[in-house]
């Protein structure tokens, strides 16, 4: 077996995912809050309240604690001279190989939360597919983007 990819993404990425999980959960809170309110107003059976609260707690646990942790633990990448290898996934572990000569362009993007934490996401596009390395330290992302685009240019061949 060829070597597994070694590099991890920034540990601040975990915090970012937790925050966006919390934002998600806020919407879940609204929904279940509405359910509770309606139950009280219209005198629906009280088990609805129980279920709404339980669902909210479960949702928050999964999206704030469990999934980000698993996701962060699994995320590995490595950019070699002639290929990019990614490994990620929560339940299903995916390992992806992208040869450098297939890379068409590299993008760097940053949402508001990522920007606050000085992180950036790199997307690598081939003629047919798009691959993402999320939550990298800014300077690392910058370096990687430069590195990939330089190597990709060298290996220019027919599509």
């Amino acid at each position: 077996m060829i070597l597994e990819p070694q590099r991890r993404i920034s540990s601040k990425g975990l915090t970012v995912w937790r925050i966006s999980g919390a934002i998600h959960s806020f919407f879940a809170l609204l929904v279940s809050g509405a359910a509770v309110a309606l139950t009280i107003i219209f005198d629906w059976p009280s088990w609805i309240i129980g279920i709404a609260v339980l669902a909210l707690v479960l949702y928050a646990y999964l999206f704030i604690i469990l999934f980000p942790t698993l996701r962060w633990k699994r995320w590995r990448y490595e950019v070699r001279e002639n290929e990019i290898e990614l490994q990620h996934g929560v339940f299903v572990i995916k390992r992806t190989l992208v040869p450098m000569i297939r890379v068409q362009h590299v993008d760097m993007q940053q949402g508001p939360i990522l920007r606050k934490y000085q992180l950036a996401t790199i997307t690598v596009s081939t003629a047919a597919t798009v691959h993402e390395i999320p939550a990298l330290e800014m300077d690392e992302a910058e370096e990687l983007r430069f590195f990939i685009s330089k190597l990709a240019r060298v290996a220019d061949e027919d599509v």
């Binding site: 995916k94 992806t96 992208v98 297939r102 003629a127 047919a128 597919t129």
Partner: peptide, 24 residues
């Protein structure tokens, strides 16, 4: 263009895996 190997927890237990190849 790219090759993906997938493996879920249960596949791993059974020593199985999936493969996906993409062309343009």
């Amino acid at each position: 263009q790219s090759l993906v190997m997938r493996e879920s927890y249960f596949q791993n237990k059974n020593e199985l895996a999936s493969i996906q190849a993409t062309v343009m």
